[in-house]
Design a protein around this nucleic acid. Sequence first.
DNA 1: GTGAAATCAAATCG
DNA 2: CCGATTTGATTTCA
Length: 667
Amino acid sequence: MEGGVARNSVPPNSFDKSKVLDVKPLRSLLPVFPEAPNGPPFVCAPPNGPFPTGFSPFFPFSGPQGSPLTPGLNQNLFNSTAMPIRSFRAEPPPASNGENVQSSNKRKSVGPSSVKKKVKRSNDSELALAALTNFKPGISAAEKDDGNRELVENVLMRFEALRRKLSQMEDAKESHSDIFKRANLKAGNIMFTKGVRTNGKKRIGAVPGVEIGDIFLFRMELILIGLHSQSMAGIDFMPMKADIEGERVAISIVSSGGYEDNAEDPDVLVYTGQGGNASADKEASDQKLVRGNIALERSLHRANEVRVIRGFKDATHQTSKVYVYDGLYKVQESWMEKGKTGCNMFKYKLVRLPGQTGAFSTWKSIRKWKEDPSSRDGLILPDLTSGAESIPVSLVNEVNDEKGPAYFTYVSTVKYPKSFKLVQPSYGCNCRDACQAGNSNCSCIQKNGGDFPYITTGILACRMPMIFECGSSCPCFRNCKNRVLQTGFKVHFEVFKTRDKGWGLRSWDPIRAGTFICEYAGEVIEKIKEKADGDDGENNDYVFNTNRVYESFKWNHETESAEERSDTSEKFDIPSPLIISSKNSGNIARFMNHSCSPNVFWQPIMYEHNNEAFLHIAFFAKKHIPPMTELTYDYGIPRSDETESNNMEHGKKKCLCGSPKCRGYFY
DNA sequence: GTGAAATCAAATCG
DNA sequence: CCGATTTGATTTCA
């Protein structure tokens, strides 16, 4: 449907320009550029052939510094309209590493209120925080101005890693030390002072590396990647000539329920101007034609593209919001009307430019499907688990007539044959109703190296060699935060027929980075069966094998010191190799396809049951995943000394992941 | 350059 | 679990 038109751009002349009053057309309205997912297929073999034993030397966060990570993706196309902002935020001088910590603290203590508060604080917290700022930015000056997909993802992933780490530290501090509060703001601040950001110059139109439908959890993320650089305000703008207030155009807006917008139509947004709100010491008042309001008025006349970000309450985390980038709009008309307070409010009608992929419209469809599952086109089964999980899993085929995948038994967890009991009995903790982060007496936390593995909302804080959840001999309740895998997934999944990769898995809900997806369920087997003649490598299908070689990647926040031992920091430590077959019985994990640039990764988790500890394989979201995006993980490569690969060429399949980093094949 | 005002946050409290 | 309140950071503007 959408094929042919680059997603983030809009064909010229597709919009009625009759309303343009007094300006020559903006050059930013013109370019149509090739976009990553639709670009030429990149097929490349790994540099050294199949990986040798051990992990391949692939460190996205510490690659060659200063060189553009992906050349040629959208860069420079927007230079014509993008302009540097003099002091969007002061960066520290490129000082030698290690001194940045001090300088950032110094910078902060200039503030009026922070000095006295900080005096009493223990040095541990200060030191812990300082340690977190001790890392290499790895982003060049040019990359700070103009980004690309890889940079945007890199910045977001590092922000999240830092935020989770701070959050974990905050959870563990029962004291009133405010040093770790507001992890997102603190993480953002550290990112800025270290210069880890991209698309820092304001621009009209698409932001390189940001795709329509991308989701965000904090306003800070929008700033870090240059989508909307106001921390709270809903209207971002940019000077056109000299910086005269009347000459500014709006470049992006956030609509998230703060005002009486009309935001139901997926193609039309009636946005309320800013100001006029009642506050503690102020009555509601008429809005004035200043700031963002005058910028939107200007954008109406200039007819420039305005990015629209729509925010909603997150269904799974009621307290927080999800922001969706909904693409480019234009201001079509403006008027003034009385709001509920009886005061005058500016209203701006924004219309979505045609030819863009759906984003908010997808959310609307899903809302409908949830109310009435049968309204889902191509629905085969409302719940393929037949109630085995607490959330149903839809089975859908919108592609052809196939009525479902080959028969298998749905099981929600992994089954060990008697002979496979892994470790000696282990003992649980003594925590009353729920284990508390920061309780150093909790033996389960001790097993996890002293850190609580999940942050409050049940999100994985860091990848670990092994994670130990509470087990059946722990007296804590089932809602203890250290029981995530064992309580099952909380996301509404859909098993769907893909166009060219068989069946796949995706979600109706937005998934934030670190969210538990599911475990790999099935039967633990000793060996992968020898291939029989006439078998076309089917034995390798529906198998998870920890003994394959998995490309390493960095997900945790890495400080300098950790970088030195980076070889081991995110490596798994499994007592003995584990092979799980989901051919006859399994769960949704068996439908997850391979990708060379996956959005999901696996993590070993152990907990005890009937006095014996069992190893489980859990999948977690690598980054924020918008609804209806296929979930994929890296299948890894069989070791050359394994039975599995006796016939390597046999099990080799052409990879269709479409990633620029595609290895070309998978097993 | 400084400080205060404004801002479609986010966390906490009751 | 919800609304109200508090806490708070950043940018803009006088």
